Amino acid sequence: MNDRLRNYRNWMMLSVFTIATIIALIPLFGVLSYVVKNGISALSLQFFTNLPKAMGLSGGGMANAIVGTLIMVLIASLLGIPIGILAAIYLTEYDRHSWLSVGVRFATDVLTGIPSIIVGIVIYTAVVLKMGNFSALAGGLALSIIMIPLIIRSTEEMLKLVSHSIREAGYALGISKGKTILRIILPTAAKGIITGAMLAVARVAGETAPLLFTALGNQYWARSLNEPMASLPVQIFQYATSPYKEWHQQAWAGSLVLISLVIILNLSARFAFRSRSN
């Protein structure tokens, strides 16, 4: 009787978990299928190589927005990834329990939950207004601020997974703390750190609000990092809210490209994590 009751409870809970999983997947695949359905027909070689056409004209593409997104994400990565990793090393290896570390961790958690539009407004006030113009540099800076707390937390967790015996073995051999971190601890946690960094890049690649206040946008090729630059999220927003059907199709195509980029980054991170687990 107890075995039958146990099997019945196991079957019931398994059914509940399966149903919950299916319900959670329905919105995901619904969004993906809808974007693919509406965006695939507008994709062409011109979309990836041409500049946007003037209002109301057919044709054109989002080549400048694709390149602009890659440039600003690269700027954000060059700023955010080193700062995030170095801060995590300090918190984990040098000053784990002091009041400063506690304060930094609290600030990191708060910053993670701050809406991205607030970051955009802050950078607009502190950088854009003082520079006198919108720019790709300001956009990359805003994205890097969003990246930093994500990288700090993920890197810190990866470093904590490195066994203390590995650190002690390095010290026992007479290796300095800095060299132990650089040559032993970081290589051991490298795949996990890279995974966290790639997920942070995927997180900021689709941000729109900060770029509206910082990079603004541009219908042409940007000639300098110190001038407005187009980006996929902003251009999608502008096209989707326009009254032109042709631009709506372009917005769907841009959405498909952006989602594909995010999926590729996430899958790469998952495969790296799986490799680390094995």
Rank of each mutant, 00 (worst) to 15 (best):
V110W: 09
L43V: 10
E227S: 11
L182R: 12
Y34L: 06
S116T: 15
G196D: 05
Q235V: 11
F213D: 06
W11M: 10
L211Y: 01
V122A: 15
L211S: 01
I26P: 11
S176W: 01
L216M: 08
V102Q: 15
I184Q: 07
P27M: 05
K37P: 00
L70M: 15
V102I: 14
L45C: 00
A87L: 12
Y8L: 14
L161S: 15
K53Y: 06
I236M: 11
S275C: 00
V110E: 05
L137D: 00
T180F: 02
G206I: 06
V102A: 15
Q249S: 15
P243N: 12
A24H: 04
R203L: 05
L91V: 12
T69R: 02
V31L: 14
A202E: 01
S165F: 01
L32D: 02
F273A: 11
G113Y: 02
P228Y: 03
L141K: 00
E168H: 12
N10A: 14
G80H: 02
L211M: 03
N226M: 13
N218Q: 06
S98I: 09
A205V: 14
D3I: 02
S224Y: 10
E207Y: 08
Y239G: 00
N218C: 04
L212R: 03
I181T: 14
G84P: 10
I146G: 00
G80C: 05
D95R: 09
T92D: 15
I263W: 04
E207S: 12
V119Q: 03
A20H: 06
V73R: 02
H164C: 05
R167K: 14
S255Q: 04
A20Y: 05
R4H: 00
P210I: 11
L256Q: 06
L45R: 09
I264D: 00
I184S: 08
P82W: 03
R105N: 15
G217A: 05
V110R: 09
A88F: 08
V67R: 08
F134Q: 10
S15H: 11
I83Y: 01
T188P: 07
L159E: 05
M12E: 11
L212Y: 03
L78D: 08
L212A: 07
S255R: 03
A215G: 08
I236E: 08
I175E: 09
L137V: 15
H164Q: 14
S176Y: 01
L173W: 02
V162Q: 07
I117K: 04
P233L: 08
